[in-house]
């Protein structure tokens, strides 16, 4: 295929997305928004996998992206179930409210 590939730019974009997601995990106070920021970080990693797979010319990176998506789906379902249980017990979604296990 003669298309121009944007491997380098894609890797830099993945870094930007990962950084934004990491920032969100630290700055947001809503548990669900924090989970969404984790999804953002996972997508940044996925983009890096795809770009490196394009650079290497092998498909192993793409298979890893597939598995990351599967694990992300499992993580999101269990995480959101935990959020529902937390909301039932504390009636809030503020991360600072869930500090029972604080040492």
């Amino acid at each position: 295929m003669g298309e121009p590939a944007f491997v380098h730019q894609a890797v830099l974009l993945s870094l930007v997305l990962f950084a934004i997601g990491a920032l969100g995990v630290f700055l947001r106070r809503n548990v669900i928004t924090v989970l969404m920021c984790i999804e953002l970080m996972l997508n940044g990693a996925n983009l890096a996998f795809v770009a490196f797979s394009r650079a290497a010319g092998t498909l192993d990176g793409q298979v890893l992206v597939f598995f990351v998506m599967v694990v992300a789906a499992a993580e999101a379902s269990v995480g959101l179930a935990i959020v529902i249980a937390l909301h039932r017990h504390k009636d809030t979604l503020d991360v600072d409210a869930f500090n029972v296990m604080k040492g």
Binding site: A5, E39, V50, M69, A72
Partner: peptide, 27 residues
């Protein structure tokens, strides 16, 4: 779109179906 431009149509389709579809609907 970017996955598609990088020559990975399978991942591009999965991204829409699994992520934008299933996971975000769950959220």
């Amino acid at each position: 779109v970017i996955f598609g431009l990088l020559g990975s149509p399978f991942i591009a389709a999965l991204q829409v179906i699994v992520y934008a579809g299933a996971i975000m609907v769950l959220f």
